[in-house]
Amino acid sequence: MAPPRPNSPATGNGFLASVMRFWNASHLQRTYASDYIGLAILLSSYILIQFFVEPFHRMFSLNDLRISFPYAEVERVPLTHDFIYALFLPLILICLSNLLSSASSHKHHVTVLGLTISLILTSLLTDIIKNAVGRPRPDLLARCAPLPDTPLDKLVDISVCTETGHHKLHDGWRSFPSGHSSFSFAGLGYLSLFLAGQTRIFAHGPGSIAEHTEKVVRGDLLKALFCLAPLVGATMIAISRCQDYRHDVYDVTIGGLLGWTVAYWSYRRYWPRLSSAKCDEPYAGPPGAAEDGPGYGRLRDEEEGAGGRNVGYELRQLNSR
């Protein structure tokens, strides 16, 4: 590791300098401690938002048909079921897959850690956006139960509502994006990526770069459908939110894209790309530790695609023939 610059915080005095010196001198960079610190921050932030933050309440009109749908007392996929489908089901399948393949403890660790980060980060981002946007749900008027003398053709605010249930009323302004959709794609999307990596349906076959340019080994259709199934399940959960009039298509589409994006980002922090010859094994060390010594380095994308070989050298050999 390069020595700190003369004017860097690590060479000064004070609390910040002490923290920087401790960081540089410790093995924290070589462990997953920073990931767990970040995870604790994400979880704490999410809990604080749940208890202390209320959404922005947009004004609305009683003659707006887009918010005039009935309130579903019984949801097709209640919140508890969403947790079962998007959290516990992926967790069980991931652990079962690792156990059946006699995976190392490191593989168990990073797989569960990636899933956890995907779900918590998605939930936090979803709630931040929900509360900031304050978009009315399609069933807002049924939740609000406005006063009888409320004008039909004017913009009004939350003060005209007679609903006394705090959560039921204020949750009416948390339509965008769909939390069920983002959460389901964060969990089931991560599961889909994991299964695709373990079954190697997009992976290049072993061999030299010449063999890679001539033949790519693809998984069979049955494996591909198996890996696609979690995404179909997440899509059905998202559709159920439109059927219950909790969200519209715009809400669930953006929610799904948000969850899928975070799932892919979280997965790739610990795993090679799906076309890599080593896609079924996680990186040997924590993110950001590529220069910390043997076992922690990561292959570049072009090296991953050739099973870790010197791609540039082999390409030059091919061109010289």
Rank of each mutant, 00 (worst) to 15 (best):
I67R: 00
C144R: 05
H57C: 14
G134N: 07
A33L: 15
R273W: 11
R174P: 00
T199E: 07
E54G: 14
S44W: 08
L99C: 13
P148Y: 08
D251N: 05
L100H: 08
N98W: 05
D244L: 01
L191C: 01
W265K: 08
L222K: 13
I49H: 01
L141R: 05
A263E: 01
P138M: 09
I117G: 03
S8N: 10
Y36K: 00
S34L: 15
I239M: 11
S18V: 00
P9I: 06
G189E: 02
S44I: 13
I37A: 14
F52P: 06
L258K: 01
G14Y: 06
F15T: 14
L124P: 00
I254M: 11
H106R: 14
A86T: 04
A238Y: 01
T126R: 01
G285M: 07
R5C: 12
V19R: 08
A263H: 07
L62Q: 08
D35S: 13
D64G: 07
L28E: 03
V262M: 00
S8H: 13
E303M: 11
P138G: 03
L16Q: 10
S105K: 07
P4I: 03
R174N: 07
L231D: 02
C242M: 15
V112G: 03
A186E: 03
R137G: 02
N319T: 09
E281M: 07
V232H: 09
L152M: 13
L62C: 11
N13A: 14
P90R: 05
E314H: 10
T164S: 09
L42R: 04
L221M: 13
Y71W: 05
M20W: 12
F185D: 00
L221Y: 14
L147D: 07
H204M: 12
P70Q: 03
R316P: 02
P151R: 10
N63D: 14
V216E: 08
Y245D: 02
N24H: 08
L299H: 06
A103R: 04
L225D: 08
A203D: 00
L124D: 02
T31F: 02
V53E: 02
L258F: 01
D292F: 14
W265F: 15
T116D: 01
L188I: 09
Y190L: 01
S181G: 09
L79D: 14
S192K: 03
T150P: 03
L115D: 05
A263V: 06
L93F: 12
D157A: 12
S181L: 07
P148L: 08
C161T: 05
Y270H: 15
K168F: 06
